[in-house]
Design a binder for these strands. Structure first.
Lengths: 199, 199
DNA sequence: AAAGGACGTTAACAATTGTAAAGAAATTAC
DNA sequence: GTAATTTCTTTACAATTGTTAACGTCCTTT
């Protein structure tokens, strides 16, 4: 970044929160004080498998993913883009060892808070419980949609929907990562792309 | 039921809520007043595809499932048992038309509240936002675990885990419903069971 | 008791995916 | 700028699943 424009990063964050519920200036002050601005270069592992997720990360800029490791193969569970809270959410919520790794796919600008600070904030700013609830609800809905597409759609349909829905990610994310996110192998995704391009 | 033991059903409900956060008697009174006890016979459709989910249902007794319909085939998305809040959750949260049906698999005893009453309650009893947040978080975690098993495990492994984790459901739920929940056809599940029994 | 429907199994075949290996293309590192 | 690595594609083969249909069993209904 050119220079320290923490203010601008925070304003963007406030705008996102206020899409859920308006915040008074004093509430916002208490919240913004607890979040820390941080930059993480590409391929940084913010939470590693086997560790407890200490923090969640609001994405101001960049791309992250969570992945599982199965027999030395990395299988992507989700891809986070700007405006979302990235985390190994289960580990963060339950404060138990994570079975997934949170990793940046690009250089990122993040706002971060750790678990105990957040618990304090929930008490200081009750309105934050509503935000926490809505964020959890949104993540549930997201997961639900992905799961249903695994139940209802073939890998080919799933790839079509992914390209329609996130055309930008096709350009920003390596294909073998997209493949595992769709629940297939890179080889199979390559075949599917060939099949589609012939039509 | 033998007779009207609404009290007993409510106490069970209170115990479940208080596992999340203690409630004062006055908070509990406000909450319990808004929930309605209801019985629903087997195969009742509480929310139908295309409708907006008006209510959520705490399960005191019985079993429910949500299912999608794809080309006249019913595909089960989740099975709810005692102690959970059953609902077409996305439709309920967003108050949009549901793409899934909520149906009882057994005769059920339920405690129910509709969407607008719940919004009122959130305002009257702020502690309920914590419960709402934790319930959403739990549902997220649940969905996440199911999704990861679709990414990581073969159908056979998924069936093994299901039988280990919910041995009771194997007896209570027809196999073709379990099959679609696992993301496979009844024929394939039958083959898997045969393969396993040979070992 | 008989008829009908729902449920589970089995079989045969087609389609798709996984696996392993090789090579081409693109990116990254030095 | 060249080497090294990563990424993507292609091929051939094996394994699994989907599809359709037939059959037997169990349960429900009349």
């Amino acid at each position: 970044m050119e220079r320290n424009d923490t203010e601008g990063q925070l304003l963007n964050f406030r705008k996102t929160l206020e899409q859920i519920i308006p915040l008074s200036d004093s509430e916002w002050k208490m919240i913004s004080r607890k979040f820390n601005l941080m930059e993480a270069p590409k391929r940084t592992q913010l939470t590693k498998e086997g560790q407890i997720a200490t923090s969640i990360y609001f994405i101001n800029k960049g791309l992250l993913r969570i992945f599982y490791t199965k027999e030395d193969v990395e299988i992507t569970g989700f891809i986070f883009s700007e405006g979302l809270f990235a985390s190994c959410y289960e580990s963060f919520l339950l404060q138990t060892k994570s079975n997934q790794t949170l990793e940046t796919l690009e250089d990122c600008v993040l706002l971060t808070i750790d678990h105990s600070e957040l618990q304090t904030l929930y008490k200081e700013v009750p309105a934050l419980n509503i935000i926490g609830r809505v964020v959890a609800e949104q993540r549930f809905i997201n997961g639900q949609r992905i799961l249903s597409s695994h139940l209802l759609d073939s890998p080919e349909e799933r790839y079509r929907q992914f390209s329609d829905q996130y055309p930008g990610l096709l350009m920003r994310v390596p294909q073998h990562i997209i493949a595992s996110y769709l629940g297939i192998t890179p080889v199979s995704l390559s075949r599917i792309r060939k099949r589609i391009s012939r039509k």
